[in-house]
Simulated scan of single mutants.
Amino acid sequence: MTRSAPPHELRLDHVALFLDLDGTLAPFCDTPDGVGPDARRNGLLRELARRLNGRLAVISGRSIADLDRILDNSVLCVAGSHGLQRRDARGHVMAAPVHPGVQVATDAFDDFAAQRPGALVERKPLSVALHYRNAPQAEGDVQALALELARATGLKLQLGACVAELVTLGADKGQALNAFMREAPFMNASPVFVGDDLTDEDGFRAAVDLSGYGVLVGPPRPTRAQCRLDSSAAVIDWLAGLLEAEHLTLECVS
């Protein structure tokens, strides 16, 4: 059953919380390495995981190793590389095999970045990303190159905030949420997925399909999410508020 609008509140003892990282739990930085541990955020996540009896997971485009670095190992259940890597509540890690096209795309992105000051290539275990936050004038060329490479290699193109990423096929954030929801301690809970960009739409869809809710972070835009928070700072304040309540309050998208 899909609901068009959330109730005023959900009981914490029946919620499973799924959180994106960049743009959601942490503000964007000029470079991916600029995002690091934050004592307040990571302390909140540890306590929330305890209050939710483990029903908390971070689902991100970053690798699991990078998530553990940034979150200071505060979250056990994580999915990295857009769901291609996943660590479950038992600590078991599963990962898809690397697509051979990733190296082809990496070489092409390296050549492009060498000629575009400000462009940055981020290597990941199962994908490669070309960031242009510091070279916004290159957006059209970045996206055209990424589309050409996706067609040539068979990799999946994912566009985000000032980034084009070519990803090994096999999973997305929605599939990662579904995998967690089939396992303890997430089973039979109401999923709430919080994220900011286009790659999070799969997570919103999966949550709604399981009678849960999507929460968009940032300005209003067309989305599958039914609820919205203004910024990553608002997300942290919202999470802090959950620790003081016995329920989870969601506000409808206006």
Results as ranks from 00 to 15, higher is better:
residue 129 A to E: 08
residue 131 H to Y: 05
residue 145 L to T: 10
residue 86 R to Q: 15
residue 164 A to E: 11
residue 91 G to W: 09
residue 166 L to N: 06
residue 135 A to F: 02
residue 101 G to T: 01
residue 165 E to M: 03
residue 129 A to T: 06
residue 174 G to L: 07
residue 86 R to H: 11
residue 81 S to T: 15
residue 128 V to T: 13
residue 134 N to E: 13
residue 133 R to T: 04
residue 130 L to M: 11
residue 166 L to F: 03
residue 110 D to M: 12
residue 95 A to M: 14
residue 133 R to N: 04
residue 136 P to V: 10
residue 172 D to E: 11
residue 155 L to A: 05
residue 181 M to H: 05
residue 78 V to G: 07
residue 138 A to Q: 12
residue 155 L to R: 01
residue 144 A to P: 04
residue 97 P to S: 12
residue 109 F to T: 10
residue 116 R to T: 15
residue 118 G to Y: 11
residue 173 K to P: 07
residue 87 R to C: 12
residue 139 E to T: 11
residue 158 Q to K: 09
residue 90 R to E: 14
residue 162 C to Y: 10
residue 106 T to P: 00
residue 127 S to R: 01
residue 164 A to T: 06
residue 161 A to K: 12
residue 91 G to Y: 08
residue 136 P to T: 10
residue 146 A to M: 10
residue 166 L to G: 07
residue 157 L to F: 08
residue 184 A to W: 07
residue 131 H to G: 02
residue 101 G to P: 03
residue 140 G to P: 02
residue 132 Y to A: 02
residue 178 N to E: 15
residue 144 A to I: 03
residue 88 D to S: 08
residue 146 A to G: 11
residue 180 F to A: 08
residue 143 Q to E: 15
residue 113 A to Q: 09
residue 84 L to M: 12
residue 95 A to W: 07
residue 105 A to H: 00
residue 142 V to F: 04
residue 137 Q to I: 03
residue 134 N to C: 13
residue 106 T to F: 01
residue 142 V to H: 06
residue 115 Q to Y: 01
residue 81 S to D: 15
residue 92 H to R: 15
residue 105 A to S: 04
residue 135 A to L: 03
residue 88 D to I: 04
residue 114 A to E: 14
residue 146 A to Y: 09
residue 95 A to H: 11
residue 147 L to H: 13
residue 116 R to Y: 09
residue 155 L to V: 06
residue 80 G to Q: 04
residue 138 A to F: 07
residue 107 D to P: 00
residue 179 A to F: 02
residue 155 L to G: 08
residue 158 Q to R: 11
residue 137 Q to D: 15
residue 175 Q to R: 14
residue 176 A to C: 05
residue 175 Q to Y: 05
residue 144 A to F: 02
residue 120 L to A: 02
residue 148 E to G: 01
residue 135 A to R: 06
residue 166 L to S: 05
residue 88 D to G: 07
residue 82 H to Y: 15
residue 156 K to P: 00
residue 122 E to Y: 05
residue 87 R to N: 13
residue 111 D to R: 15
residue 126 L to N: 09
residue 111 D to S: 13
residue 94 M to Q: 15
residue 162 C to Q: 14
residue 170 G to S: 12
residue 136 P to A: 08
residue 126 L to C: 09
residue 93 V to E: 14
residue 104 V to S: 04
residue 180 F to Y: 10
residue 122 E to N: 05
residue 120 L to S: 04
residue 147 L to S: 15
residue 141 D to A: 15
residue 176 A to P: 00
residue 123 R to V: 10
residue 88 D to P: 00
residue 159 L to Y: 02
residue 153 T to F: 02
residue 79 A to W: 00
residue 130 L to V: 08
residue 101 G to Q: 00
residue 115 Q to P: 01
residue 146 A to R: 02
residue 178 N to M: 11
residue 89 A to D: 06
residue 83 G to Y: 04
residue 158 Q to P: 00
residue 167 V to A: 01
residue 179 A to P: 00
residue 115 Q to V: 06
